[in-house]
């Protein structure tokens, strides 16, 4: 009887989060930390107390060579909060776990794709304020999410594990994100982030290319960095190595 009248103490729900991944290339904290501190000093406040995932996939070292405890301590001193690891061998994951870093599983990723080594992470945008439609995975073949209404300033749409097709405009101040490709059959004036689950083969297509920012697999270009991109024209964006390429469509 009494258990029925007790107020609910908690609810357990799944949640998806946007996190930065610190891909280790060198196992030594003394090599990683100063460079990291230097980079973050140039963006003060940007990552203060930001949770971060330590990426182990690129690390060519034996598990016993990595000083996880030293790394965790050093990160805390930089006011960065490591919360777990992604990728890496079984032994490496275990070594990290002993230092209090549990392995996290990336959404939709069975095996970690080989990432571009110097990917610049896109800062996680402010929390979505407007509800974004959920992707519809009905139909066969590769999943795609279709948006037929203009995406307006302040709206944020994420096609998780899917391509995103927008048949209207994406206005300035809006943000569209897809784990796969992005197609905009209208004007792209906001931000477009393709290959968000670290897929460097993802592309962005827009009928009228006029974006604030485009990003593929963590590489990004703001409007000022678009150079000789065909602004206002039908355009395809893809990643070639670490270079973003803008080519006219058709």
């Amino acid at each position: 009887m009494s258990s029925q009248t007790l107020p609910e103490a908690f609810r357990l729900r799944a949640g998806n989060f946007n996190l930065l991944v610190l891909r280790l290339l060198d196992p030594r904290p003394e090599a990683v930390l100063p460079a990291l501190g230097d980079q973050f000093r140039r963006a003060p406040g940007f990552l203060r107390f930001a949770p971060i995932v330590i990426g182990l996939a690129d690390l060519e070292a034996a598990p016993e060579e990595v000083d996880f405890r030293g790394l965790v301590e050093g990160l805390h001193k930089l006011e960065i909060v490591p919360i777990g690891t992604s990728g890496g061998s079984q032994a490496m994951k275990q070594a990290a776990q002993h230092a209090g870093l549990p392995p996290l599983r990336a959404v939709g990723a069975e095996a970690e794709p080989a990432p571009p080594p110097e990917a610049i992470p896109v800062p996680p945008a402010a929390a979505a304020t407007e509800a974004a439609p959920r992707p519809d995975f009905s139909g066969s073949g590769r999943a795609a999410m279709l948006v037929a209404e203009p995406v307006r300033s302040g709206q944020r749409i994420y096609a998780q594990g899917a391509d995103l097709i927008v048949t209207a405009t994406v206005n300035a101040g809006a943000e569209i994100i897809a784990d796969g490709n992005i197609h905009v059959y209208g004007a792209l004036r906001g931000r477009a982030v393709a290959g968000a689950a670290d897929d460097a083969t993802a592309r962005i297509f827009a009928l009228n290319f006029d974006p604030e920012l485009v990003a593929i697999a963590g590489f990004y270009a703001v409007r000022e960095g678009l150079g000789d991109a065909p602004i206002g024209k039908p355009t395809q964006v893809r990643l070639e190595g670490e270079e973003m390429r803008f080519a006219p469509l058709g």
Partner: peptide, 14 residues
């Protein structure tokens, strides 16, 4: 225009 765009989004969601 941008603020109007924003309010249109709010109308659609709130």
């Amino acid at each position: 225009v941008r603020d109007s765009d924003r309010i249109l989004g709010v109308l659609q969601s709130k």
